[in-house]
Design a binder for these strands. Structure first.
Length: 518
RNA sequence: GGCGAGGUAGCUCAGUGGUAGAGCAGGGGAAUCAUAAUCCCUUGGUCGGGGGUUCAAAUCCCUCCCUCGCUACCA
């Protein structure tokens, strides 16, 4: 575990030209679970998300919509903010790259790079296809009929040159490799680290960091006809939010360097090559870790607008329930892998582990107490070996899950929780309180207390993943809202016998199996 | 082409030298507190092909086949 108690975690800032989809929901939920987990564990957490609003595409989209770019961004950014709210995301801030604080921070980082001598004016030259609005590398081109080069799309290309500022990335290769070497966990999962290292080892070219062909961006200080390259602008959001360039700012002191930038694998290079190079050049400490997660397919197929199979997060929530979606997204495959979203598999998972596993464990225990103990939690008698084994299992869940969470092993962490739920279900069957009711009511009371206590801890530790359901269950156990942190896991926070419990109600309804209709 | 990851039960995957594992699916049974949920037992695999090292290989070496990533400036 980190030697300090603060934890700064970020999602990527989402590009306002996109429509929010399951990929955005996935990244944000994973971060939210980590943020909530460490918060409940007593760490000082700062959780940032937001929107990336500059660039040519946004300028064009706004124009196509007949809108001012900023008005367009206001509208689109709000959609991401609404999605975060709909997913019960506990972010501490929501940053927009069009905010004055961010423009100031971006210009400040530019000036720091310039002052360090890592920026120079040159010209950017390449084969450009006007029709595609894109540059192509020479080896992508083929000879057209009139012996002119044409792009893979068939568009004719021209050799163009425009003035551009460059960042001396080529000078940073060795220092980046040394940095990766000194921080073996900077890039996770390990396979991604290898990709980045081999990329950097292949040699780096200087990076064009300004544009003159469009206007929607942060103006380059002292060169008003240039705007900053979008990635330099976008990445800077992570320091803007904690007060950069004011390194004495309270948030900056508390939270920089960031503990974790969560990213999709498509933007790994920007975060693990360009970003640490920019920061080191600007005299700012790089973040501690970048984690690249995988992609979802839908029913075995790649999601795409043209296939029309892009999964809408709002539909997911409506179909399965919010907490169920949060859980299943992190539980279908190991975090960092790619995986498939299939309706059948998701329903099996939710029914098996949440409805039948944990939900039913709560329901069978609490309704038994309601019917056979007058709704009052029994006082425990002397604990048997089986009682202690179950309690030790659930009490031991915290250190075990903490260690998985520290390496973003969300799937493995949830696996540990599922195993504990299963152990509790085995316990109730082998102790059979329904038999004890007639033969040994006192022992029955102890068993019920042990179960309630185990359920309390299971609910607390799964709270970051399924906050609403966990709270409902804790309500049913009459656990005070002030006792809902990981510090309460263990005997010191144990339930008191004799407490009157409210009427039980299921927390995870069983979902209907999908109809095999076409 | 180069570099990298991977090919293990019907499905998803764990297992990196010592008698093949889990979950789900399939089969049988127990129990009846519970959201017909739970618990127990069980069928099922020449561990991609071939060769080699070793007393012993899914695990190490060689080779071949297949799949997937990365191989820089739209984000």
């Amino acid at each position: 575990m980190s030697d300090r108690r603060s934890f700064y975690i970020t999602t990527p800032i989402y590009y306002v030209n996109d429509k929010p989809h399951i990929g955005h929901a996935y990244t944000t939920i994973a971060c939210d679970v980590l943020a909530r987990f460490w918060r409940m564990d007593g760490r000082d957490v700062y959780f940032l998300t937001g929107t990336d609003e500059h660039g040519q595409k946004v300028e064009k989209s706004a124009e196509a919509a007949g809108m001012d770019p900023l008005a367009f961004c206001d509208l689109q950014s709000a959609k991401f903010r609404e999605l975060a709210a709909a997913m019960n995301i506990s972010n501490d801030d929501f940053i927009r790259t069009t905010e004055p604080r961010h423009i100031a921070a971006s210009q400040a980082i530019w000036q720091a790079l310039e002052k360090a001598g890592d920026i120079y004016l040159g010209s950017y030259a390449g084969w450009y296809a006007v029709r595609d609005e894109a540059f192509y590398a020479e080896d992508e081109l083929t000879k057209g009929p009139d012996s002119r080069f044409v792009a893979p799309s068939g568009a004719p290309v021209d050799w163009v040159e425009e003035p551009s500022y460059f960042f001396r990335l080529s000078a940073w290769g060795d220092r980046l490799l040394a940095f990766y070497d000194a921080h073996p966990d900077f890039i996770l999962p390990p396979g991604k680290r290898n990709e980045v290292v081999s990329f950097v080892k292949g040699g780096l070219k200087d990076l064009s960091v300004s544009r003159t062909t469009f206007k929607w961006g942060v103006p380059v200080p002292g060169a008003p006809d240039h705007i900053m390259y979008v990635w330099l602008d976008a990445l800077t959001n992570y320091v803007t939010a904690v007060g950069y360039p004011d390194k004495q700012a309270e948030l900056y002191q508390r939270f920089w360097p960031a503990d974790l930038h969560m990213v999709g694998k498509d933007i790994l290079r920007f975060h693990t090559v360009y970003w640490p190079a920019f920061l080191m050049a600007a005299g700012v400490e790089p973040p501690k870790r970048v984690f690249a997660h995988g992609w979802w397919t839908a029913e075995g197929q790649k999601m795409s607008k043209t296939l029309g199979n892009v999964i809408d997060p709002y539909e997911l929530i409506a179909s399965y329930g919010l907490d169920q979606v949060r859980y299943v997204l992190l539980r279908e495959f190991p975090f960092g892998n790619d995986g498939d979203f299939s309706r059948k598999s998701v329903i099996t998972r939710i029914n098996g582990e949440l409805a039948n596993g944990f939900g039913n464990l709560g329901q069978r225990t609490l309704s038994f107490i309601a019917k056979n103990a007058e709704g009052r939690l029994p006082e425990p008698g002397r604990l048997t070996e089986a009682d202690q084994a179950l309690l030790q299992h659930v009490y031991g869940l915290l250190p075990a899950m903490r260690s998985e969470m520290a390496s973003q092993a969300l799937y493995q962490a949830l696996q540990l929780w599922v195993e504990a739920v299963n152990a509790a279900n085995r316990y109730i069957d082998s102790e059979a309180p329904w038999s004890l009711r007639k033969t040994d009511p006192e022992r029955m009371g102890t068993v019920l207390w042990v179960l309630a206590e185990a359920i309390r801890c299971l609910a607390l530790i799964i709270h970051p993943v399924v906050p609403q359901a966990a709270d409902r269950l804790l309500d049913q156990l009459a656990v005070d809202s002030t006792a809902r942190s990981f510090a309460a896991i263990g005997t010191s926070g144990a339930l008191k016998g004799g407490t009157l419990l409210p009427a039980p109600a299921g927390i995870f309804p069983r979902l209907q199996d999908p109809v095999a209709a076409a």
